[in-house]
């Protein structure tokens, strides 16, 4: 076991972390940076609560070794708002009341953002397909899907 210094961007800010081999990206984000938006849910890649974007791609940060993101751009929910302005997708989530307990919300919003970056005008099927790895136990999904669909208009 040897700690290694890695350089990465988190939400646009350069970071230098000294991390061990068995450190996980999620734990570093939460405990080192205090970015607690990404949640530790199932820990085995089933629930999507730990989703962050690594180089723009949705990734499960509970299954990513911290050392392997050396040189990467990581975006968490905290980095989505710019200059105090919420991302339009975040506003859509508020408008549609697509939040109850909030545990799944950061992952849901980032998946929605990744989808809209790729397909600006998605169908409901696209949205449901994209979100199938993000579990929500409160909303029944309808309001979340609606938030992403209304945002595109």
């Amino acid at each position: 076991m040897t700690a290694r210094t890695i350089n990465l961007n988190v939400n646009g800010e350069h970071k230098e972390w000294s991390v061990a081999e068995n450190d996980l990206l999620l734990t570093e984000l939460r405990e080192r940076e205090g970015l607690t938006g990404a949640k530790y849910g199932c820990g085995i890649g089933e629930c999507g609560a730990c989703t962050v974007l690594v180089d723009g791609q949705p990734s499960l940060s509970c299954l990513v070794l911290a050392q392997s993101v050396d040189g990467c751009d990581v975006l968490t929910i905290e980095g989505l708002a710019r200059g105090g302005e919420l991302d339009p997708l975040q506003i859509a989530f508020l408008d549609q009341a697509a939040v109850q307990c909030g545990f799944c919300t950061p992952g849901m919003v980032l998946m929605g953002r990744a989808l809209l970056n790729e397909i600006p005008d998605p169908t409901e099927k696209d949205v449901r397909e994209f979100l199938k790895g993000n579990l929500c136990r409160c909303t029944g999904y309808s309001s979340i899907v609606r938030a992403i669909l209304t945002h595109r208009r």
Binding site: G48, S59, L63, A114
Partner: peptide, 9 residues
């Protein structure tokens, strides 16, 4: 295949 995140990773 599984979920979008797993497809990416």
């Amino acid at each position: 295949f599984s979920t979008m995140q797993i497809m990416v990773m």
